[in-house]
Write a protein that binds this DNA or RNA. Structure first.
Lengths: 354, 354
DNA sequence: GTGAAAGCGCTAACAT
DNA sequence: ATGTTAGCGCTTTCAC
């Protein structure tokens, strides 16, 4: 192979334009202290030669690496990928972030890190040492992992924590899970439902709790009781099945159920079907996530849409801004990208309602 | 922010182990000419200090960048992402390639490049100059773009061409599209179908043609005529609708249709429903792609499964091997990762068949 | 087998 | 406003 050198370097541009390296560098970075005339001359040389700075070299000289590291939970990501259930979290996260990166001359690198492992810290440090990213994006459950947060804070790398409100460094972004749960609950209450069940997600995720709280608050607001209407799942289909059964086989079953993930809602739908309950005539359903499959079920599901792509893009944007402005120029308060409720055909007034 | 230096460099390791930088480098790369004792000492220092080489520095000194660039068509990828139809091409491609990269200490970077643009070449060169990847993965339709292929060949960067058989550099990987179409056709013929229609994909993709050829050959093999049984689409839902109508509204409509993408098959299913044709009793359907949605349609679709993740992983593997062994150590013949046929409930014997 | 020296492409700090 | 200098962390000669 032989050592492949950069085809055209800053040196070629400098020679061509008849200026110093530093001037070229200034032009590249739009820095002041360059006469318009020179700037133009340099730019012309850059265009002519097709010069593009090497990010390796840029990183070497202590400036930015132009890399944003997006970290996801290994097990869950691989499981979703293998299952091919249409979960498009990775897709949304990657594209949303990637396009925003591209707009700023950055790249996004996806990395999987174990959750339940003693190596978490080492894995993360290895990725950071190897890549020297300018920013890191954490997703649940890593967003709330104290080890990870601490490592990043100690390294002084700007980082975003999606789906977290915890303290300890970096900045947070949420889709206002409580508000979303509230909206879903009030939507059902507005249709006349009085017994609205809720299937919670894994307690390992902070947002699971927020959603439950949002539901609880909305129920209180509507003057409805919540007793016997909460079941706990872990986002998976199997857990949804169990939770749905617990809810529907009770003495006073709910007439509507909100489940904290599409998989759990799918399980609830199937459970209802097996029990001879027609959706939405006899049971209304609202899902969380709004992954592609919910449009293909019978009936298509009303769902809270997680704006992952947008959150990812926002995170990138803020990270890059933070890098430019100095380490602590990150939002102090959590950034909220509100979720929307997409109404489809799984919700209707309860049986016997006018 | 201040210039962030590498926390622990090769120098620290060398000092800690009491050896030269060079010896550490040799240990890292498993090179010969190091006594076992020294090797151990160095390794111990590496572990102790948690040293991980900076890929920027590695790249700078002319060795590998440990980066593989995966290039996809911008328009199609963004359209798929926005549409949220459950197309998991990106997911499969990324995870498959990424995990293989990780196994070799590499990273995969995703990049979108325009197809129909005068800038293709410049976009690509910019990405290469910035990243200096050790290998590039091309997907259709870029795999057959002579400009791109030529640029890569000229730069002496090993590259993989997925879904291509064209010459001009790099190496090819396919899922044996002709064979897959043949399998699908014979499956239907075996059920007793004699009029098996085929909806082709965009002619811009070489594999579209291969699939048609596979179908044609299989039809001949089974002694069946193909006249009036071929319609052309472009992989999209809309085009599938048109093609399905053309096929089904003819004088002698097919009793089975193979469509070159899930979207087109979905469109065919819907068209059949509107015409009052029951699937699979009156019309059998076989799809291409096997994205998640085909399991959620009524009925679930029998489909040719595109082993994207595996192809992506193979491409990475071969690229890395090529880099190690020298530029031309790439497969001369196309690498075939055969597609499978996943039988579901959209195929049955034709009406009036014993 | 091991080490020392040179330099990759770029930028920060310091001249001028 | 522009140029010069000194590395960044690593690998590649080449010497021993």
């Amino acid at each position: 192979m032989g050592r492949r050198r950069q085809a055209v370097t800053i040196r070629h541009v400098a020679a061509d334009a008849g200026v110093s390296l530093q001037t070229v560098s200034r032009v590249i970075h739009n820095e002041p202290n360059v006469r318009a005339e020179l700037r133009e001359r340099v730019q012309a040389a850059i265009d002519k030669l097709g010069y593009v700075p090497s990010i390796a070299a840029q990183r070497m000289s202590g400036s930015r690496s132009y890399l944003i590291l997006a970290i996801n939970d290994r097990d869950r990501t691989i499981a979703d990928w293998r299952a091919r259930q249409g979960t498009d979290w990775v897709d949304q996260m990657l594209l949303g972030g990637m396009l925003e990166c591209a707009a700023h001359g950055y790249r996004m690198i996806f990395e999987l890190v174990d959750t339940h492992s003693a190596h978490v810290e080492r894995e993360l440090l290895a990725a950071i040492a190897a890549l020297q990213p300018d920013g890191v994006i954490l997703t649940p459950p890593h967003s709330d992992d104290p080890h990870i947060v601490e490592v990043l804070a100690r390294q002084h790398i700007p980082f975003a924590r999606i789906g977290s409100l915890g303290a300890g460094g970096g900045f947070s972004l949420t889709m206002d899970d409580a508000g979303a749960a509230r909206t879903a609950t009030l939507h059902l209450a507005g249709l006349g439902h009085r017994r609205i069940g809720f299937i919670a997600g894994s307690p390992e995720y902070a947002l699971s709790t927020w959603r439950v709280e949002g539901w609880r608050a909305a129920m209180a607001e509507a003057g409805l009781a919540t007793e016997g209407l909460l079941a706990e799942g872990d986002f998976s289909y199997a857990s949804g099945e169990q939770a749905a059964r617990a809810l529907l086989e009770g003495e006073e079953p709910p007439t509507a159920i909100i489940a904290s993930s599409d998989q759990m809602t799918l399980a609830t739908l199937e459970t209802a079907r097996r029990m001879g309950l027609e959706v939405p005539r006899q049971l209304s359903l609202v899902s969380f996530d709004n992954t592609p499959i919910v449009r293909f079920t019978q009936p298509p599901l009303t769902a809270v849409d997680q704006p992952i792509a947008e959150i990812s893009a926002r995170a990138v944007d803020l990270l890059i801004a933070a890098k430019k402005a100095g380490e602590d120029a990150v939002p102090a308060a959590p950034v909220v990208v509100p979720a929307g409720l997409v109404e489809r055909q799984s919700t209707a007034p309860p049986p016997g309602h006018a």
